[in-house]
Simulated assay, not measured.
Amino acid sequence: TPSALPTPSGPPALPEASGVGRRIVYSVYAHRVWLVDATGESSRTFTVWPGTVDPQPGRYTITARTEATTGSDGVRVEHIMYFTVASGVNIGFSNAVDGASPPPANGARTGGIRLHKEDGAALWSFGDLGTKVSVVK
């Protein structure tokens, strides 16, 4: 009897209608980020832990970068890259200095999209001020 064909596996595909050119793509529903090079190909993708306040789908740019600080949840974070404000809360990417995943927010309004430590370092290297950020559902 013929064997079943292997099912292709690998990282999820870059969402359609996520823009063109070099950019960071963030999917609110998938809790995932893609780093997209100038040719439109994803060079890296990874999962994230969203804050309690989500950005609206749309096109943004990195407006500020901070090497390290304490997040609104009291966790020491690094590689902070802000790209918008939603409901009065700053929204940006960061990773915990100790590499831990964030605890539940306990009702706090947080806009930090937390990354694994190695992904935070990769995003920090990829995204300068003005880098495009595409937020999709």
Results as ranks from 00 to 15, higher is better:
Gly130Tyr: 04
Lys117Trp: 09
Trp34Gly: 09
Ala122Lys: 11
Ser43Asp: 08
Arg44Glu: 12
Ala105Cys: 01
Phe46Cys: 12
Trp124Glu: 12
Ser101Phe: 09
Gly71Leu: 02
Gly10Phe: 10
Ile91Gln: 09
Val89Pro: 01
Lys137Asn: 13
Gly107Asn: 00
Ser134Trp: 00
Ser42Asn: 03
Ser3Met: 04
Ala30Leu: 15
Trp124His: 12
Val85Lys: 07
Met81Cys: 13
His116Tyr: 06
Gly112Gln: 07
Ala38Lys: 12
Asn106Ala: 13
Arg22Thr: 07
Asp73Lys: 01
Ala64Met: 12
Ala96Cys: 01
Lys117Pro: 00
Thr131Ile: 05
Gly58Ser: 04
Val135Ala: 04
Thr52Trp: 02
Glu41Val: 15
Asn95Ile: 08
Pro50Ala: 06
Glu78Trp: 06
Ile91Phe: 01
Thr63Gln: 14
Val85Ile: 12
Ser9Lys: 12
Val36Gly: 10
Thr47Met: 11
Asp119Ile: 02
His79Leu: 02
Arg32Ala: 11
Thr1Lys: 08
Leu35Ala: 03
Gly19Asp: 06
Val53Ile: 15
Ala108Tyr: 00
Gly74Ser: 08
Ser9Pro: 01
Leu129Glu: 09
Val33Pro: 06
Ser125Arg: 13
Gly112Thr: 13
His31Cys: 10
Gly51Val: 01
Gly130Leu: 07
Thr110Gly: 05
Gly130Val: 09
Gly120Glu: 08
Arg109Ser: 10
Arg109Thr: 05
Asp119Glu: 12
Leu35Glu: 09
Arg109Glu: 13
Ala68Leu: 02
Val136Leu: 01
Thr61Asp: 02
Asp128Ile: 02
Lys137Tyr: 12
Tyr29Asn: 12
Phe93Thr: 03
Gly51Leu: 07
Pro11Arg: 13
Glu67Pro: 12
Thr84Lys: 03
Asp119His: 15
Met81Leu: 14
Trp34Tyr: 08
His116Thr: 13
Thr39Val: 04
Asp37Pro: 05
Gly111Leu: 06
Pro12Cys: 07
Thr47Lys: 07
Ala30Phe: 08
Gly71Pro: 00
Ala13Tyr: 03
Arg22Leu: 13
Gly107Ile: 02
Gly19Tyr: 05
Tyr26Asn: 09
Pro6Val: 10
Val75Asn: 03
Gly88Leu: 06
Ile113Met: 08
Leu5Asp: 08
Val97Lys: 03
Ile62Thr: 03
Thr66Met: 10
Lys137Asp: 13
Ile113Gly: 06
Pro102Asn: 11
Pro102Cys: 04
Leu35Pro: 09
Ala4Asn: 03
Tyr82Pro: 00
Ser87Cys: 01
Phe83Ser: 04
Thr69Lys: 15
Pro104Phe: 02
Arg23Glu: 08
Pro6Gln: 10
Val36Tyr: 05
Ala105Glu: 10
Leu14Ala: 06
Thr66Ser: 10
Gly71Ala: 15
Thr110Cys: 07
Ile24Tyr: 00
Gly74Asp: 07
Val89Cys: 04
Ser3Ala: 14
Arg59Gln: 14
Asp119Cys: 02
Ser18Pro: 02
Gly120Leu: 07
Arg22His: 11
Val89Lys: 00
Tyr29Thr: 12
Gly10Asn: 07
Pro57His: 03
Val136Gly: 04
Pro55Ser: 04
